[in-house]
Structures are given as C-alpha cells and as structure tokens.
Design a protein around this nucleic acid. Structure first.
Lengths: 141, 141
DNA sequence: GTTGGTGCAAAGGATTTGCAACTTG
DNA sequence: CAAGTTGCAAATCCTTTGCACCAAC
C-alpha cells in the first residue's frame, strides 16, 4: 500500500466509511518511522492538536489489519502501515535490534519452501508469519 | 529438551537453583497440549492443589526462555516447552488453526535461505522467528 | 550462612465491552 | 434517515517493580 489515498480507496471499495479518525490514523502510520502502539498514535495526534479515543484507535487498527492496510509486528507489538500492497507471498519483516529500523518484504520462493516443509509434516500452511531479528545496514558496519 | 530431568540438569549446570516452583512450572509445560499463558499455568496448578504467585511464574518463564528450555509462541502469546534441544537452525512452530495443535521444528536450509534474503537487503539476521498457521494432519483430511 | 528465589502488595499499562450519541453516505 | 462509527465509562486482564522473607546450596 502506498499513500493514504490508496488506503482510503480500498476502505471505500469494501463498503467501509471514510471517516476523520480513520484518516488521522492512516496519516500517523504513513509518517511513522517504525512500529507504533495504539497509545503512541494517540500521543502523536495529541501533539498535533487532534484528539482520538484510544478505543477508537484499537478498533481502527483491527480493521486495517483485517484489510491488510497495516500489520502488527509481533516482536515489538507495534503496528506499521503495509508497504507492499498485493504482493505474491506472505508479508514479513526484518527488525533491527539496535535502531529499531523495520523493513517489510515478501518472497514467493521462501513461501513455497516453507509450504513444502510443512507438507512433510502433514501440515497445510495457510499463512507464513516470520520476522528476522538482527542488525540493519546502518548498524552492522 | 526432553523430560523434566534434562531441564533441571541444564538449570543446575548454569548455576541456577532447582526450586519447587521451577519444577512445578516445568511439569505443567511438559504435560500441556498447547501453548499456555502464565495465568493458565497458575490455574492448572491450582486444580492440582499447588499454589504459585503469578509474578513467580512470569519470572520463571523469562528464565526458561533465556535458557531455551521454553519458547514464547508469538501468534498466540503462550509458552511451550522446547521440544528440540540444541538443534541446528532456529526453532519454529506450526500451529493448527482448528485444534491448536503445535509442532516445533528446525530447518537449517531454511535458516540459510532467510539469511541470504536478509543479506540482499544489507541486513544481518541473527535470529529468525517464524510460525506457520494452517491445518494439521488431523484437521485437513 | 549467603545468595538467589519467591511471595506480597501495589502500581501501571494494555485491551475489551456496552451503550448512547454522532457522522457518513 | 439509517447504518456504520465513535466517545465515554468502566471493567478486566496483563505485566512489572520494590522489598521483606524464605529456601537452596
């Protein structure tokens, strides 16, 4: 997903309403450097003079994740705007343990290899969740 | 890790004490069908007439994860006893979305492929978390 | 007897629910 | 105007901290 407008279009096309709170949360996710928690989002908005109830933010993030407009990064618990759109293969993350930098990627070959491994165990994998933890290019020199 | 005794041996060898609470938590993890939360563990012990403070359980689980005697399953937030011991490659999980069954595995080739992908992005991956979500052999027939 | 572990109390977050009021299409 | 959203209050749950006491070695 690139740009707030694209996300709004998707919302509309799925029958969801384009509301002020949803636009505000999208804007924060768009500009965030890394993963942000619901309360982070609330604080950021407050600094800009906007007010949103935290419950509203929780519900909006739930919806965004459902629609794949955003993802929850499990290693840190924060949310990020999806950076890939409809790309082949599951969306995954690399997280830098030093600076917290985050990079989203998708790799179809990796998906297929994982499915094959699962199959060897009689398991049908529908979704592959993965996050790499290490050092980004800036921090590993 | 197989068996409570092995885990106790590792605890001792690293200079940690073998205490009653640690033995109790190990026993619960050993017998659990799937991932259990700290409060799950407390409830299970209560049903057996044992009492442990929840803070103690949190601390014990932290230690077990540090020593790789247990893992936290990110997709569900629960803890499982490590089933692999020192195996080459990161420890990963397949979780059945229907019955909750969990299978731990390690795959060195997958680890290497993931490291290669990371390297392409200038990233040095130190640990690969991954969990597959789908249907186990019992549920996909 | 020391040191490391545990229990307790309490604080601080995080997350969810139900319902009334408001907005969007 | 009707249905979908939001705000509010409150409840619940999760997790952590500091300190006094206890148990393991």
């Amino acid at each position: 997903m690139s740009g707030v407008e694209d996300s709004l279009r998707i919302l509309r096309s799925k029958g969801y309403r384009v509301t002020q709170p949803r636009k505000l949360v999208l804007k924060v996710l768009e500009r965030a450097e890394g993963p942000v928690s619901p309360y982070d989002i609330q604080k950021i908005l407050q600094q800009e003079g906007e007010r949103l109830n935290h419950v509203t933010i929780y519900r909006i993030l739930d919806l965004f994740c459902l629609l794949n407009l955003a993802h929850k990064v499990l290693l840190c618990g924060g949310f990020v705007k999806c950076a890939l759109g409809k790309r082949e293969g599951c969306h995954r993350f690399m997280v830098c343990r030093q600076c917290g930098a985050l990079r989203e990627f998708a790799d179809k070959a990796l998906c297929e290899e994982e499915s094959a491994i699962a199959r060897d165990f009689g398991f049908v994998a529908e979704h592959h969740f993965s996050e790499f933890f290490g050092l980004c290019s800036n921090c590993n020199s």
